[in-house]
Amino acid sequence: MDKVCCFGELLLRFSPVANGEWIRQASMPVFVGGAELNVATALAYWQVPVKYSTALPENSLADDIIGYVADQGIDTSGVVRFGQRIGTYYLPQGTDLKNAGVIYDRAHSSFSELIPGKVDWDVILQDTSWLHVSAISPALSMNVAGACQELLAAASAKGITVSIDLNHRARLWQYGMAPDEIMPGLVEHCDVVMGNIWAANALLGIAVDEHIHAKGQQTDYVAHALATSEAIQERFPRCKVVANTFRFDAPPAGLRYYTTLYVDGQQYVSTELFTESVVDRVGSGDCFMAGLLYGLYHKHAPQEVLDFATVAAFGKLQEVGDATGQSVADITKRIHTLTSLT
């Protein structure tokens, strides 16, 4: 059976209550995640055949985690075992990954020890029709970036569809190379690119209007998404689909959200969604990516693909944890409700 293979670092997220309350409670929730695993978990829940590839050490903690991943219906045959550590990060409850409060503890993890030639990618890509990666992995080191380049080239040579999430984590790019020196060599192998106009600028050097926030209207952002999508496709001819997301805080605690999808020379735009409060921001973008893959994998119509991904991502904002537990029926029902209101 042809599967979607999601490749990236598995991370443990420690989520302390702010202001030291976690010390007084002697308790700190831990979530098994990582951007690509979050995508894989959603796809498995939505009955898309999926496997996960990462690097983990040979120890009992990693054994427990692999068992947990397998229990989600994910093929773990792509997990390779070497090294000593599992990557972790700390994020106080209620904050965002892009917030300065995130503390990474990923140095010397098994995944960070990837180097070109270390993994037989032909074995990893067995029974795979689609490979999904993100920009987080090549941000870790030149060696990991080289391994990613090796993987994407192997997938491209096999005719495997490749998607990438342009997650921009500026605090991870610390090894002397600018993102736009590394990422274009990876994106040239990709059929599907998801991100936003700012990530495309930071990672690919695609121009961004520095005054776009001053304009501030949805029509301005949507027009910019179109220009960015066209520029990406012009520069990377293999790319067939570009998706952009827009997520803005709406004080005091709310959020507004909308997205675009560019395919076959046409841009599709989602409904703008608004919530007065957010439970957990982590994993919303991963949920959008999973929704995008779900629709494209099943060859749904572009607007249907976009609506599913958008409503899924928006729903994830009300879930605790890294990966979504929303069913296809849940998401479809909310889409129908929104359609009836417009």
Rank of each mutant, 00 (worst) to 15 (best):
M1N: 11
L293T: 10
F248H: 14
P184I: 02
Q303L: 14
P92N: 08
T95I: 05
E9R: 00
S163V: 02
K3N: 06
Q217W: 11
S141A: 11
L172A: 02
Y268D: 07
H224Q: 13
E234R: 13
D249A: 15
W130L: 05
Y221A: 01
G33I: 01
G73N: 05
F82P: 07
H336Q: 14
K299V: 08
R169Q: 04
P138C: 09
V208R: 07
W46R: 05
T76N: 10
E234M: 12
D180F: 09
L172H: 00
S163C: 07
K316F: 08
F274Q: 12
V48W: 05
N59A: 06
L125R: 00
Y45V: 06
A62C: 09
V162K: 03
T88C: 15
K299Y: 12
A18W: 02
D330M: 03
L12P: 01
P302Q: 04
L293W: 09
W46Y: 08
S112E: 15
A135Q: 10
A100L: 09
E21D: 10
G73I: 08
A42C: 06
I197R: 02
E58T: 14
P29K: 02
L226D: 13
N201T: 11
A55E: 02
Y258P: 03
G67H: 12
E36N: 09
Q318G: 06
S134V: 11
G285D: 05
D120T: 09
Y294V: 11
A107K: 14
L10A: 04
L152R: 01
S229D: 06
P138N: 06
E230Q: 15
Q303A: 14
E188T: 10
M142V: 14
Y45D: 13
L338H: 11
K215L: 15
L317Q: 09
R171G: 00
G8Y: 08
L61C: 09
I160F: 00
I74K: 01
A153F: 06
E234H: 12
T88F: 10
G146E: 03
E319F: 05
P92G: 09
A55S: 05
H213R: 10
P179W: 00
R13W: 00
V328M: 08
D191K: 02
H300G: 10
H298W: 11
G87P: 10
F274R: 12
Y90V: 15
W198C: 08
E113D: 14
D191E: 06
V69Y: 05
D120P: 01
V50W: 01
T228P: 00
Y257I: 01
Q84W: 09
V187E: 03
V32A: 02
T332N: 12
L140D: 03
S129C: 07
M1H: 13
A225N: 15
G185P: 00
I136W: 04
A223S: 13
I86P: 04
S156P: 04
P92R: 05
K240V: 09
E21Y: 10
M142F: 13
W121Y: 14
Q318W: 09
I23F: 01
S270W: 04
F111V: 03
S163R: 03
Q25S: 06
L151Q: 01
G325E: 13
N244M: 15
R334Q: 15
D249T: 14
V263A: 10
